[in-house]
């Protein structure tokens, strides 16, 4: 399993390159166009990182998270969700780059291979910025939202967070 995990990345790249070669795709051109998109993603999220990182540090220095954490600990314990991921879950449906920055901060502080780090990564990877998606789609379609999509989407997000915490606990807890 561990060897397989370490081989995933090289094998994926090899398979993608071989597949592209067979199809006659210009590999250099495709990869440099992709890398450019990667840089654009970074450019898009860097401002958020620059705001969220200090904001989280500041919040932690204030002592408020300890107070809130102590108050909400029974709730998180009951749901089986690490209380450290509270801010990430709150930001996730609202702001894509904010959630990404919050997840990064968690992984950096607790380590990417820790239970909390993994839970944060799984939560981030299996959900979307629901409010943004709803706004974009209804605006584009020119139809007024009848108020059904939002509750369904937010419930799905909640299920996603609970399921992420559960599966990480089972696999790596």
């Amino acid at each position: 399993m561990r060897v397989l995990g370490q081989l995933t990345v090289p094998l994926l790249i090899l398979a993608a390159a071989l597949g592209a070669a067979v199809k006659g795709v210009d590999i250099f051109d495709a990869m440099s166009a992709g890398a450019k998109k990667g840089l654009l993603i970074l450019w898009g999220i860097l401002p958020s990182l620059l705001v969220v990182f200090p904001a989280i540090r500041l919040l932690r220095a204030s002592g408020l998270p300890e107070l809130l954490g102590a108050a909400l600990r029974p709730v998180f314990a009951l749901l089986g969700v690490p209380e450290e991921t509270g801010l990430l879950m709150l930001l996730r449906p609202l702001s894509g780059s904010g959630a990404l920055a919050a997840a990064t901060e968690l992984m950096q502080r607790h380590g990417p291979d820790s239970l909390i780090g993994r839970t944060a990564a799984v939560m981030l990877g299996s959900s979307e910025t629901s409010f943004y998606v709803i706004a974009v789609y209804f605006t584009a379609a020119g139809i007024r939202d009848d108020g059904r999509a939002l509750p369904a989407a937010l419930c799905a997000d909640l299920v996603c967070f609970l399921a992420s915490a559960w599966i990480c606990r089972v696999l790596w807890g």
Binding site: I13, A17, G19, M31, A35
Partner: peptide
């Protein structure tokens, strides 16, 4: 990010 965007672009152009 650049590495994975590059690999994804390859997959897309290969018709996946």
């Amino acid at each position: 990010l650049c590495l994975w965007s590059a690999v994804t672009e390859l997959l897309e152009r290969s018709g996946v």
